[in-house]
Design a protein around this nucleic acid. Structure first.
Lengths: 138, 138
DNA sequence: ACAAATACTATCAAATAGATAGGATATATA
DNA sequence: TATATATCCTATCTATTTGATAGTATTTGT
């Protein structure tokens, strides 16, 4: 399961992609209302995405958030890794958050293989999906 | 990520499959030692698998655990659902643990589709792997 | 100056993860 | 029947994560 936080992040990004314009940023309050996301929680999420160079923000009047890069350049994989961390089901099989399992010799591990396979199939789908491809559906 | 508990469960089952014999059950202590799993924690896991009709147990001298069904009949999917619950990444996309997302209209949900795809690809792999197919590798 | 927006810091409650402890119960065998 | 051995059961505990809220500081346009 991905966290609510991650689900909110994806939905917020899709909403921003669908609603930003050259001269207008999208405000937290609007996203929160339209997507039914707790506002203060959403603030944290958007700031997080901004710190990770997915969004840019502007304060004050007419402030808000915009995508820092084209929506077609932001994959689900990237967003999920920022918010939730590893996508793989085992730490020892994670590409971006590798950790060894203390209890087993990896070369002899009998379950590693399956989870590498799951990881690859999962990434195949998630790498192929961008905020743009999700936004277009609506 | 799957939990440690789930990883332990799978490893324990593979160990049992590799070590049980018609006249001999496999003991918690042996599994714990060989697979480096905290013993008392493992007890809980094995009892859980027994309550869910994956294992059978016998108490007292020469007691221990055996697979209740052929190892080729026990898929990873089944084990993971018992120990960790849903395999899907969103509750609204889970086949066995469906829950709706309070905040969204499912028909209009823009992210549901991708996660159905991930679910299907994941289940394709996990349904195809059994305790037997893992045990044979070693 | 003022209003409106994000930024930041601190905090909190509930759930889950990951165990550990200690005693009850069943079973084989001497 | 006594004993050793193994699972069974209940209770408990700590740390982390999840999901969120509150309050204040800061920036910005008019």
């Amino acid at each position: 399961m991905i966290s609510n936080k991650c689900k909110y992040a994806i939905k917020a990004l899709v909403y921003i992609a669908n609603n930003e314009q050259d001269d207008m940023a999208v405000m937290t309050a609007d996203i929160a209302r339209e997507q039914q996301i707790p506002r203060k929680f959403l603030e944290i999420i958007l700031r997080d995405l901004r710190n990770n160079r997915i969004l840019e923000s502007r304060r004050g009047k007419d402030g808000g958030f915009r995508l820092l890069r084209p929506a077609s350049d932001i994959s689900l994989t990237e967003v999920m890794r920022i918010i939730d961390g590893p996508i793989a089901m085992l730490p020892c099989v994670s590409l971006n958050y590798y950790r060894s399992c203390d209890e087993c010799e990896e070369e002899a591990c009998q379950i590693k293989g399956v989870f590498e396979l799951v990881r690859d199939k999962t990434l195949e789908v998630l790498n192929g999906k961008t905020i743009k491809s999700l936004a277009l559906q609506g």
